[in-house]
């Protein structure tokens, strides 16, 4: 059985898979993958998944559970997801605080939900359903958004905390999303981070984003991580402790060496920020928040 994930991981991408297998760099300590890319799928995706399992701890991160949707989860999907997370041995499964479609349709994007009491209740219900239907802890990820969801953007973290507390869920803390939202809606990202219930955080995401000519920042996962996000990650790790950090790169995927250089930079920040702190995300996942 693989160890729990720790340190720096990367998203498992087909574009880099063969080279990753060949070089098996020590800097990459675990891999994250999207179940929707593997369930009901064959061919290279499945064969490479099997190979990845032999080498790295795997963590699953869903794209379509849609915690912000008023309708219950599709049972067939949840059954397949439960089997999949068992198969890969993930210590927790995360998905997004968003909605991704209604009435059987899927937008294949992460659309925001308003920071309202109704949305909190909806999300708590969906997270609890997921907890009942999966065999692993469920973590909720904060999303980046471009349409304001409340007059005070800092309400987002209050909204999320209420969801986490009422559903007794974990947090997948996306540091880049906090930063993107802070720039788009004008708030101090550290004030947002200060309100995070650190004991609930099991994993973090960092990524690059795109800055449009009009200044709007779009969470593309297709650029290099900017210095401000590295700095915010450092700040966050010092508060939260050594939880596994994932480098998300889903578009404009560069050569593996470029990815590894970012991993090394993350590793340096991670080591400096968490030196002397021993509690791990695995401890949190098994001991309860």
């Amino acid at each position: 059985m693989k160890e729990h994930p720790g340190g720096i991981g990367i998203g498992f991408r087909m574009d880099l898979a063969e080279e990753l297998f060949e070089r098996a760099p020590d800097a990459v300590q675990w891999l994250e993958l999207h179940p929707e890319n593997y369930i009901r799928r064959g061919g290279r995706y499945r064969s490479r998944l099997a190979k990845a399992r032999e080498r790295w701890p795997l963590v699953t991160h869903g794209l379509t559970m849609s915690f912000g949707c008023p309708r219950p989860h599709e049972r067939e999907y949840m059954d397949e997801l439960r089997d999949f997370v068992r198969e890969v041995g993930t210590p927790w499964h995360s998905d997004h605080a968003c909605f991704g479609g209604a009435h059987g349709a899927f937008v294949h994007d992460l659309l925001p939900v308003p920071f309202t009491d109704e949305a909190v209740s909806t999300m708590v219900a969906r997270v609890r359903e997921a907890q009942d239907q999966l065999d692993v802890d469920v973590a909720v990820e904060n999303v980046s958004y471009y349409a304001a969801q409340a007059e005070d953007p800092l309400l987002e973290i209050d909204f999320l905390v209420e969801v986490l507390e009422r559903a007794d869920a974990r947090l997948m803390l996306d540091v880049n999303n906090v930063y993107v939202n802070s720039k788009n809606f004008g708030f101090d990202p550290k004030r947002w981070i200060d309100k995070v219930p650190t004991e609930r955080v099991v994993q973090m995401h960092v990524a690059g984003h795109f800055v449009r000519q009009d200044g709007l920042r779009i969470d593309t996962h297709g650029e290099a991580i900017c210095d401000d996000v590295y700095e915010l990650l450092d700040y966050t790790l010092r508060r939260v402790g050594p939880v596994p950090v994932l480098l998300e790169r889903d578009n404009n995927i560069p050569p593996l060496d470029v990815v590894l250089a970012e991993v090394e930079q993350l590793r340096a920040i991670y080591d400096a920020a968490t030196r002397g702190v021993t509690e791990s995300a695995a401890d949190r996942a098994t001991e309860g928040a």
Binding site: E36, R40, R41, E74, G104, F106
Partner: peptide, 11 residues
């Protein structure tokens, strides 16, 4: 119609 599948490759 719009996509009815959650699996992007099946779109």
């Amino acid at each position: 119609r719009a996509p009815r599948t959650r699996y992007f490759w099946r779109v």
